[in-house]
Amino acid sequence: MIRPHRAHPLWLAFLLHRISGLGLALFLPAHFYVLSLALTRPASLDGFLHWTENPLLKVSEFGLVFLLAVHMFGGLRLLALEFLPWSPRQKTFAAAAAVASAFIASIFFISAVA
Protein backbone atom coordinates (compact mmCIF):
# COMPACT_ATOMS: atom_id res chain seq x y z
CA MET A 1 0.00 0.00 0.00
CA ILE A 2 1.19 3.52 -0.78
CA ARG A 3 1.47 5.48 2.45
CA PRO A 4 -0.86 8.50 2.61
CA HIS A 5 1.84 11.19 2.50
CA ARG A 6 3.01 9.73 -0.82
CA ALA A 7 -0.37 9.48 -2.51
CA HIS A 8 0.07 12.35 -4.97
CA PRO A 9 0.70 12.33 -8.74
CA LEU A 10 4.24 13.68 -8.54
CA TRP A 11 5.29 10.84 -6.26
CA LEU A 12 3.80 8.36 -8.72
CA ALA A 13 5.82 10.07 -11.48
CA PHE A 14 8.93 9.49 -9.39
CA LEU A 15 7.98 5.83 -8.81
CA LEU A 16 7.38 5.22 -12.52
CA HIS A 17 10.74 6.80 -13.36
CA ARG A 18 12.53 4.54 -10.86
CA ILE A 19 10.77 1.37 -12.00
CA SER A 20 11.37 2.10 -15.68
CA GLY A 21 15.05 2.72 -14.87
CA LEU A 22 15.32 -0.61 -13.05
CA GLY A 23 13.52 -2.37 -15.93
CA LEU A 24 15.95 -0.90 -18.45
CA ALA A 25 18.93 -1.78 -16.26
CA LEU A 26 17.78 -5.41 -16.31
CA PHE A 27 17.13 -5.36 -20.05
CA LEU A 28 20.35 -3.74 -21.24
CA PRO A 29 22.88 -6.47 -20.23
CA ALA A 30 20.71 -9.06 -22.00
CA HIS A 31 20.47 -6.74 -25.02
CA PHE A 32 24.24 -6.29 -25.24
CA TYR A 33 24.80 -10.01 -24.77
CA VAL A 34 22.51 -10.81 -27.71
CA LEU A 35 24.19 -8.17 -29.87
CA SER A 36 27.59 -9.66 -29.06
CA LEU A 37 26.39 -12.97 -30.52
CA ALA A 38 26.69 -11.32 -33.96
CA LEU A 39 30.46 -11.47 -33.49
CA THR A 40 30.87 -14.68 -31.54
CA ARG A 41 28.08 -17.03 -32.63
CA PRO A 42 26.16 -15.70 -35.69
CA ALA A 43 24.20 -18.93 -36.01
CA SER A 44 22.65 -18.69 -32.55
CA LEU A 45 21.88 -14.99 -33.17
CA ASP A 46 19.86 -15.94 -36.25
CA GLY A 47 18.06 -18.57 -34.22
CA PHE A 48 17.28 -16.01 -31.56
CA LEU A 49 16.03 -13.41 -34.06
CA HIS A 50 13.77 -16.05 -35.49
CA TRP A 51 12.40 -16.71 -32.04
CA THR A 52 11.64 -12.97 -31.57
CA GLU A 53 9.13 -13.14 -34.42
CA ASN A 54 6.77 -14.77 -31.96
CA PRO A 55 3.75 -12.56 -31.14
CA LEU A 56 4.29 -12.69 -27.38
CA LEU A 57 7.65 -11.00 -27.88
CA LYS A 58 6.07 -8.37 -30.12
CA VAL A 59 3.81 -7.49 -27.21
CA SER A 60 6.70 -7.30 -24.82
CA GLU A 61 8.48 -4.98 -27.27
CA PHE A 62 5.63 -2.60 -26.63
CA GLY A 63 6.50 -2.76 -22.93
CA LEU A 64 10.11 -2.01 -23.72
CA VAL A 65 9.28 1.02 -25.86
CA PHE A 66 7.02 2.19 -23.06
CA LEU A 67 9.83 1.86 -20.50
CA LEU A 68 12.21 3.78 -22.76
CA ALA A 69 9.71 6.55 -23.44
CA VAL A 70 8.72 6.87 -19.78
CA HIS A 71 12.33 6.96 -18.66
CA MET A 72 13.38 9.50 -21.25
CA PHE A 73 10.47 11.85 -20.63
CA GLY A 74 10.83 11.38 -16.89
CA GLY A 75 14.46 12.46 -17.17
CA LEU A 76 13.59 15.45 -19.37
CA ARG A 77 10.89 16.40 -16.88
CA LEU A 78 13.42 16.45 -14.05
CA LEU A 79 15.96 18.44 -16.07
CA ALA A 80 13.31 20.97 -17.02
CA LEU A 81 12.04 21.19 -13.45
CA GLU A 82 15.48 21.81 -12.05
CA PHE A 83 17.02 23.98 -14.75
CA LEU A 84 14.22 26.08 -16.20
CA PRO A 85 12.45 28.79 -14.21
CA TRP A 86 8.92 27.32 -14.22
CA SER A 87 5.82 28.70 -12.68
CA PRO A 88 3.50 25.91 -11.47
CA ARG A 89 0.96 26.67 -14.22
CA GLN A 90 3.50 26.44 -17.01
CA LYS A 91 4.67 23.21 -15.45
CA THR A 92 1.23 21.62 -15.71
CA PHE A 93 0.91 22.63 -19.36
CA ALA A 94 4.38 21.36 -20.16
CA ALA A 95 3.67 18.05 -18.44
CA ALA A 96 0.44 17.64 -20.39
CA ALA A 97 2.23 18.46 -23.66
CA ALA A 98 5.02 15.99 -22.89
CA VAL A 99 2.57 13.20 -22.06
CA ALA A 100 0.59 13.83 -25.23
CA SER A 101 3.69 13.89 -27.43
CA ALA A 102 5.14 10.80 -25.76
CA PHE A 103 1.88 9.01 -26.43
CA ILE A 104 1.75 10.00 -30.09
CA ALA A 105 5.44 9.27 -30.60
CA SER A 106 5.13 5.80 -29.09
CA ILE A 107 2.13 4.96 -31.25
CA PHE A 108 4.12 5.93 -34.37
CA PHE A 109 7.14 4.07 -33.18
CA ILE A 110 5.20 0.94 -32.42
CA SER A 111 3.37 0.96 -35.74
CA ALA A 112 6.77 1.37 -37.41
CA VAL A 113 8.37 -1.60 -35.66
CA ALA A 114 5.35 -3.89 -35.59
Binding site: H5, L10, W11, F14, E82
Partner: peptide, 10 residues
Amino acid sequence: CHSQQGCSTF
Protein backbone atom coordinates in the same frame (compact mmCIF):
# COMPACT_ATOMS: atom_id res chain seq x y z
CA CYS B 1 16.52 16.66 -3.21
CA HIS B 2 14.82 14.22 -5.61
CA SER B 3 12.17 16.76 -6.66
CA GLN B 4 9.36 14.45 -5.54
CA GLN B 5 7.50 17.52 -4.29
CA GLY B 6 5.98 16.09 -1.15
CA CYS B 7 6.93 19.41 0.43
CA SER B 8 5.05 21.54 -2.11
CA THR B 9 2.07 19.19 -2.05
CA PHE B 10 1.56 19.65 1.69
